[in-house]
């Protein structure tokens, strides 16, 4: 952003030399292309490897395929066949969806309400509460695994008085939704509060003068114009939960009826990692849905990220 800004300023000040125009037009593009290529090369290698036989992957690099593109021994769909035909892969996809979608919707809903309250409602301790919530971002979720599991399996007591009842949430979808909600909320509240807080105060005032309650203002006004921010966080949360292995394994477990795609994939590799070549194909199979989501929502993604940061 800043690069484009400085170049824009120079344009008004004086006519540009040829060199500068070349730099303007090509340097930025060139850097972008170089970075994109650097990032894409390993992915491309993975894609090529996923279509190669296991023996070939161990004995030669993926770039060597370009010498023998037409050779039928170079290519195989065996890895994909192995992944797609694995017992329970379809079920694992459904499980992943059953975990991911609510674990995306729930935290966003809560975070949007909270963000509005932090930004536009006056109550005592607002700043302190907000700082505490933001501060929670630095707590690694791994620290919460065992305490949370204890609460799930046995509830929580303080001085003999039950504070949280024993809900037996371990191994249930509800349990993993709640866990993801808790782990996702601090960042969600922080991002959304920044966006919602940057909306013009005059808008809120006029809504209030027109007789709208906080709830009406939130539903009718704030949510519709916050869609870019909400959507961009939805993508973050969706990708994070979809790719999550640890939280699902701890709170949902790896039994075949509930295991999600990431856990299923880790199992495919075998007890001693001997079938690791299926990971290449598995990576692309599991990538399909996140990619669809990303491209489907990408127009929100860019807007949402920049909208909060450069306003005003």
């Amino acid at each position: 952003m800043s690069v484009a800004y400085e170049i824009g300023m120079g344009e008004e000040a004086r006519p540009k030399t040829l060199m500068e125009r070349i730099l303007d037009r090509w340097l930025v593009k060139l850097i972008v292309v170089i970075i994109a290529v650097l990032w894409l090369v390993p992915t491309a290698g993975l894609l090529v490897s996923s279509f190669r036989p296991a023996d070939a992957i161990t004995t030669s690099g993926w770039w060597t395929v370009f010498d023998k593109l037409a050779d039928s021994r170079t290519w195989t769909i065996e890895n994909y066949r192995q992944v797609m035909n694995a017992d329970g892969m379809g079920n694992a996809f459904l499980n992943s969806l059953a975990v991911t979608i609510p674990a995306t919707v729930i935290p966003i809903t809560i975070a949007a309400f909270a963000a509005y309250a932090f930004a536009w409602m006056d109550f005592r301790g607002r700043q302190v509460l907000f700082v505490v919530v933001v501060g929670l971002m630095v707590v690694p979720l791994q620290m919460a695994l065992i305490p949370l599991l204890k609460i799930y399996t046995g509830g929580a007591n303080a001085f003999g008085i039950p504070i949280i009842p024993d809900l037996d949430l371990s191994g249930t979808y509800m349990g993993v939704w709640l866990a993801h909600t808790g782990f996702g909320l601090p960042l969600a509240i922080y991002l959304l509060r920044n966006y919602i807080g940057s909306l013009p105060a005059s808008m809120m005032e006029s809504a209030s003068i027109d007789g709208a309650s906080h709830f009406q203002t939130f539903i009718r006004l704030v949510v519709p114009i916050s869609v870019p921010a909400i959507a961009s966080f939805a993508i973050f949360q969706f990708l994070w939960v979809w790719n999550d292995f640890l939280v699902a394994l701890v709170f949902l477990g790896g039994t075949p009826d509930v295991s999600v795609v990431t856990i299923k994939l880790a199992e495919l590799v075998g007890s001693r990692g001997q079938d690791w070549q299926v990971l290449t194909a598995g990576a692309f199979v599991t990538m399909i849905l996140p990619l669809t989501v990303f491209f489907g929502l990408q127009r929100f993604f860019v807007r949402g990220l920049t909208a909060g940061s450069v306003k005003g």
Binding site: L148, L149, K150, Y152, T153, V250, G253, G254, A266, E267
Partner: peptide
């Protein structure tokens, strides 16, 4: 008899036992 296997067994077993599960 329901078997559950995990390549992450070494860490998981500690979490489960300490977590009361």
């Amino acid at each position: 008899v329901v078997y559950e296997g995990s390549g992450d067994f070494e860490t998981q077993i500690g979490i489960r036992i300490n977590g009361g599960n």
